[in-house]
Design a protein around this nucleic acid. Structure first.
Length: 266
DNA sequence: ATGGCACTTTCAAAGTGA
């Protein structure tokens, strides 16, 4: 089973690149973030023609997630509300979470975690609240039925200094401040493993590069797009790789796709 | 200290991202 995550920064602008990429990398599930389109306008047809179906949860202009799938997903749900009905509704107003089950005891959760703007801002507080809700959501999901979890997406957090080209001043920087890292660590402590870091200890591997200052050419990036898997899935882990090729195309997304390979049988 | 680049939206200047 192959699963990719890719923040495409508008699915309609990136449609040709995404379809091209899928033809060379026919993954089973492609988890998209920042689709930036309402569901009625999501371009289903190009994916249907390539043997995929689309589960999407979008909004106008901002955010939006989707799972492009080669097989039907069971129990597809959008947002926190399906498991956390008492949670404040404002955390589901922005379309940032979609989940479905490839297998009865495996949940695939695709997230677009808030950026947070700057440390200490209102958006930063929203990001931390969203992360706390995600932690409770995952605990609830795991606790209910021993579901194994594949959690992927754009986390907008570099977990460690080796995930940043230049970690100086990281404490005051969005995506690397200590409260953000601790919030992600609290999620991970529910028994999740960073699939890329399992066997890739060295620095210099990134998934996002700023559009400005020739950041990609100079490999001045951040590793903020991740796959986390339940420890119970570790025996099935084959590998996790970042495909930097699309980032070098004309008019690219600022993120590269990250591919998870699992030896799971259908 | 600021902007640098790209995307979206009642079409063009502003909000957002990271």
């Amino acid at each position: 089973m192959e699963i990719a995550t890719w923040n495409v920064n508008s699915i309609r602008t990136r449609l040709e690149q995404v379809c091209q990429w899928l033809e060379h990398h026919p993954v089973d599930y492609l988890c998209l973030q920042e689709t930036k389109v309402v569901d009625e306008l999501f371009p289903h047809q190009p994916f249907l023609e390539r043997g995929y179906q689309v589960y999407c949860a979008g909004q106008k202009s901002y955010n939006g997630v989707a799972i492009v799938s080669r097989r039907p997903l069971d129990r597809v749900e959008v947002g926190f509300a399906s498991l956390l009905p008492d949670r404040e509704e404002f955390l589901d107003e922005q379309k940032r979470l979609i989940m479905g089950c490839p297998l009865p005891d495996v949940a695939l959760i695709n997230v677009y975690i808030p950026n947070g703007s700057s440390v200490g801002s209102d958006k930063y507080a929203y990001k931390l609240a969203w992360l706390e809700a995600l932690r409770i959501y995952l605990d609830t999901l795991q606790g209910q039925s021993q579901t194994r979890i594949i959690l992927c997406g754009d986390f907008n957090i570099a977990p460690e200094d080796r995930d940043i080209h230049d970690p100086s001043d990281r404490e005051n920087h969005i995506m690397s401040s200590e409260p953000e890292r601790q919030a992600l660590e609290a999620i991970r402590q529910g028994g999740l493993v960073d699939a890329f870091r399992h066997g890739n200890p060295e620095t210099g591997h990134y998934s996002w590069w700023d559009y400005r200052q020739g950041s990609f050419r100079r490999n001045r990036g951040w590793r903020i797009d991740h796959h986390y898997i339940s420890e119970a899935l570790l025996p099935d882990l084959i590998g996790c790789t970042i495909d930097v090729q699309p980032r070098g195309l004309p008019q690219p997304s600022d993120h590269a796709p990250v591919i998870l390979s699992l030896g799971l049988e259908w």
